[in-house]
């Protein structure tokens, strides 16, 4: 079997070996590319609206009759990055329990969505919020006040969870 003659170089035609027509073709391609529409999004002016499947900052759902969380502590338990801290207390409402303290350390959070998956009350969900900039480390630790988001703003995500989970 003598297949040494069938190399890449030998298969080329004379014009291809000359390279210059091929280079001209390449230049033509890039020139054509210059006049095509651009893909750039002018970020601070044009913002991207994520779909329901997007996993952004985890938030607590603030339902019409108050927060859904019953402070079972499953999210804190399952969190692989140990970002969540929950302290429970009793209340007179139907749910009997509520979190006195609920903190998510956003410097630790890896946006895996385990907390949302494990939650029996659908009380913690991933929001669409992706602009997470902090001036100081303390600002990155989100307390209940910052975490509670009205249920109306989370409809896309809740709909997504209902359909695909």
């Amino acid at each position: 079997m003598n297949n040494t003659k069938n190399t890449e170089v030998e298969r080329r035609s004379f014009w291809e070996k000359l390279y210059i027509p091929e280079i001209a073709k390449g230049l033509g391609l890039t020139l054509a590319e210059m006049f095509k529409p651009k893909f750039t999004r002018q970020y601070p002016e044009e913002r991207w609206e994520p779909l329901g499947s997007y996993r952004g900052r985890p938030v607590l759902v603030d339902d019409v009759d108050g927060e859904r969380c019953v402070a079972c502590g499953l999210c804190s338990r399952v969190c692989p990055a140990l970002a969540i801290e929950v302290n429970a207390d009793e209340t007179d409402r139907d749910k009997e329990r509520f979190p006195v303290k609920f903190e998510i350390n956003m410097l630790r959070c890896i946006y895996c969505g385990f907390c949302e998956e494990v939650c029996p009350e659908e009380a913690i969900v991933m929001s669409k919020d992706y602009e997470l900039v902090f001036q100081r480390q303390e600002d990155a630790i989100m307390d209940k006040e910052k975490l509670l988001v009205p249920v109306a703003q989370l409809q896309d995500r809740l709909e997504f969870l209902r359909q695909y989970r």
């Binding site: 890039t30 590319e33 210059m34 095509k36 529409p37 651009k38 893909f39 750039t40 002018q42």
Partner: peptide, 10 residues
């Protein structure tokens, strides 16, 4: 500018 235009950027 030219490099950006060739790569589909602004």
């Amino acid at each position: 500018k030219v490099s950006a235009f060739i790569q589909g950027r602004i």
